Amino acid sequence: MTSGDGASAPQAPERWVDVASTAVGAAACAVLLLVGAFAGRPDVAVLGAAPLVVTAWHLLRRPSGLVRAAVVAGEEGPGGTLSAAVVLDAPAGTAAVTVDVLRHDRPVVHALVRTPGSRRLPLLARTVRTGPQEVATVQVQGVGPGLVSVSDPAPRATRRTVVLPAAGSLPDVPLPPRLRGLTGAHGSRRPGEGGDLRDVHPFGPGDRLRRIDWRVTARRAPDLRELWVRREHALAEAVVVLVVDSRDEVGPDPLTWRGSQPPRPQDATSLDRARQAAAAVARAFLDRGDRVGLDDLGVRRRPLPPGAGDASSTGSGTPWR
């Protein structure tokens, strides 16, 4: 699969705000301090003064700057696994960072991560779909010392990729009735060299001397007045054009067929099956040295002309770069 980074949202103002519970707790501590001072109860005043001093100390050490997050490519994983990494960059003094991971606008992970500066978190996602899709969307928020302040939520970081279909192996593939390539690995109907025996024919213009069959000549023309040559079928290659229509895509749930709602992300669609079948057929023909082309009826562009190449390029890994 090939990859691409999602567009970053506009950066929010870099500010930290107090937690609502902090203000409530500070007010309660201030009331205890005043009650203890006016009532002559130092023990009550200490109960209110100590938390108030600690809260003020943490507020003075409140970080400045916004927590940053980015989703970058990770190591290649097995089929159906999308690998990435979340890179966190927190300003000095940040106690922790809340990390929310979403896929298809649905929350999947919520974690509180301690970040002494920068940190890299592995991220794995599984998919049964192919084509362009979202790996993950990450939103983070910083937590100040003593959990008395939080930062504004950082802009969302998104990673998108193109998942290539897995090319399965086929034991055998059909061949067209007429092979077009001049040379190849399959027997054709036209006369040539390298294939199975076609017939034995009297020597004529265009025949090569090395094609003379001396045994047949000695049997049919003992006086050597006529020479006989062996003619063979030429070896040729198949030229295959795969046709895929990407305009329609339906899932296994009939409720999604009318188009009012998209197929569920956890269900493979008809287009996913078509891509996998096309990749398997292309790999089978390429392994035999044939040429394969592609025409997508749902895209307004020229078809991919038939060509040969490495079968691994039909898609069995997840290239990110």
Rank of each mutant, 00 (worst) to 15 (best):
G146D: 08
R156A: 00
V162Q: 11
S149T: 08
V162G: 12
Q139G: 08
A166P: 11
A167F: 00
V148W: 02
G142I: 11
G142F: 03
T158K: 05
G144H: 13
A154K: 03
T158M: 07
Q139Y: 01
P165G: 11
R156P: 06
P145Y: 05
V148P: 00
P165D: 10
G144P: 14
R159Y: 15
L147Y: 05
G168M: 06
P155S: 04
Q141V: 12
T161L: 15
V138F: 06
G168T: 05
A167Y: 01
S149A: 07
D152S: 15
T161K: 11
G144L: 10
V162C: 14
A157W: 01
Q139N: 06
G144A: 15
V140A: 02
G142W: 07
A166S: 12
Q139I: 03
G146C: 09
V150D: 04
A154Q: 03
V162Y: 07
V162S: 09
T137E: 08
A166T: 10
V138Q: 04
G168Y: 03
G144W: 12
V162P: 12
V163A: 15
R156Q: 00
G142H: 08
L147M: 13
V163Y: 09
D152E: 15
G146I: 10
V138E: 09
L147I: 03
V163W: 07
A157V: 01
G168H: 02
R156Y: 01
G142P: 04
A157T: 00
R160W: 11
R160D: 12
Q139T: 14
V140D: 06
G146W: 07
S151G: 15
S149V: 08
G142D: 05
T158D: 00
L147G: 02
G168N: 08
P153L: 13
T158F: 00
T158R: 02
D152H: 13
G144S: 13
P155A: 04
R160N: 10
P153F: 11
A166W: 15
A166F: 13
P153C: 14
T137F: 03
L147F: 08
R159K: 13
R159I: 03
P155N: 02
T137G: 00
V150K: 12
R160Q: 09
L147Q: 08
